[in-house]
Amino acid sequence: MLTERRDDLVHERTRVLNRLHAVLRDLLLGGAPTGLSGRGDRKELGS
């Protein structure tokens, strides 16, 4: 049961990062960085 829950969380995290990347790609001149990880990416985004 825990393994299934972990897999669900990993898939959800991936889905959210992909959506974030798509939005940033549309908003940022020149596109978004390809190595988004969810940690420390504010520096790359200029925030």
Rank of each mutant, 00 (worst) to 15 (best):
M1H: 06
M1W: 03
M1C: 08
L2Q: 11
L2P: 04
L2Y: 08
L2D: 09
L2M: 07
T3E: 14
E4G: 10
E4R: 11
R5Q: 13
R5S: 11
R5V: 12
D7I: 15
D7L: 14
D8K: 05
D8W: 07
L9K: 13
V10K: 12
V10I: 15
V10E: 10
V10G: 00
V10W: 07
V10D: 10
V10R: 14
E12F: 09
T14H: 11
T14C: 05
T14F: 08
V16L: 15
L17H: 07
L17A: 03
L17V: 00
L17P: 01
R19Q: 10
R19N: 12
L20E: 03
H21C: 02
A22Q: 15
L24C: 05
R25V: 01
D26Q: 14
L29M: 12
L29Y: 08
G30F: 07
A32W: 02
P33C: 01
P33I: 03
P33M: 00
T34I: 04
T34V: 02
L36P: 00
S37R: 12
G38I: 08
R39Y: 14
G40D: 06
G40Y: 02
D41M: 03
R42C: 02
R42P: 00
E44N: 10
E44G: 07
E44Q: 14
E44W: 01
G46T: 05
G46E: 13
S47N: 10
S47D: 14
